[in-house]
Amino acid sequence: MIELYVTKPNELELRHVDSLRAPKDDEVKIQLIYGGICGSDLSVFKGKLPHATYPVRPGHELLGVVIEKGENAAYDVGTRVVVLPNTYCGTCDLCVKGYTNICRNKKSLGVNVDGGFSQEFIISSKYVLSVPDDLPDEKAVLIEPFAVVVHAFKKVNIAKNTTVAVVGCGNEGMLAAALAHHLGAKVTAIDINPNKFELIKKVGNIRTLYPYELQHETFDVVFEAAGTKSAVEQAIRITNPGGDVVLIGLATEATFPVIHIVRSELTIHGTIIYQFPDDYLQAIEYLRDPSFSIDPIVSKILPVADYQQAYELAASGNVGKVILSFKKV
């Protein structure tokens, strides 16, 4: 079979490997259908994630079909599934409190253990979830990245006419803008790239602005999804007194105006990945809703043989989600 592999930073190759062993105990063997390219996949490839290990097989936004199962596996052969790419021990103090998303012993597929950009891979069935038959592959592959946004939205209250700003229109930012719009909020998407504006406007009636175009306007809820110092600092500046800032991006540092935060009674929420399976199940329900406009966020589906083009396109910053297809290898 074939798989993608990052041998070291900036070296990505498609290689042939031996067939896999049979799954044991609670394991399942999954034949991959689609794999979405995430910003963290690009960071691993470029050597920008300090906790990444090499060599490593990338890929964690995974949709596939169970083709073999161990004797204690939770899913039958033929079941279409998505994958939880972050392990949790279930026994550390954080897991016991329910914070499996920040487990002290967490490992992440495609970062510090091998991911799923392979024709087939084996994983414990406790880290997979079945997909409803009425959810097409092109939406089902978004469950994992969309669950990040679903989890973030649980930090705040978004209702009809809530004013929402999304700073940064990468994949997570566009998903956040789409969900806020779906919930009836008045949404403003902020980015430096006009190509992202064209995509986000296809989702619905969402206003788009460059960062410098915001003067004295403020918002009830601000989602920061750019992951840069300037974006975090702007997010705090443009939040209404008594409002909420939700930090989705992974900026390494920022300068916080403490007196402004205190006097304005701002609430700042940190959020990372999701709770499994609850956030996945909620993501599925949104994606099944025909009124939820999400299709424009998927920009390109390319065969895995075109992996170089796919990675270059995803890294360009000019498109939405880029997906690798393993359907016809």
Rank of each mutant, 00 (worst) to 15 (best):
V150L: 09
V150T: 10
L179T: 04
C169K: 04
L135W: 09
L175R: 06
G168P: 00
K154H: 14
L135V: 05
V149I: 11
T162F: 11
L175A: 11
N171H: 12
V167R: 02
H181N: 13
V141R: 01
I158A: 06
N171G: 13
G168Q: 05
C169N: 09
A178P: 03
I143S: 01
A180I: 08
V150H: 08
L129N: 00
E138R: 09
L179A: 01
P132I: 11
T162M: 07
V166F: 07
V148H: 04
V164F: 07
L179K: 07
H151P: 08
L129D: 05
L179S: 06
E172K: 13
H181V: 04
K160E: 15
L129E: 05
V166N: 02
N157F: 15
A147E: 01
V166Q: 01
V166L: 02
K160D: 15
V166Y: 02
P145T: 11
A165K: 01
E172C: 15
E172Q: 14
V164H: 01
E138H: 11
L129F: 12
A165C: 10
F146M: 07
A176Q: 07
A140M: 01
P136L: 05
I158D: 05
F153C: 02
E172Y: 14
L179Q: 01
V164W: 09
V150N: 02
D134P: 07
V149W: 01
P136H: 08
V141L: 07
V149G: 00
H181L: 12
D134W: 12
N161I: 13
A147D: 01
N161L: 14
L129S: 00
K139P: 01
N161M: 14
A177S: 12
I143G: 03
G173D: 05
S130R: 03
C169Y: 10
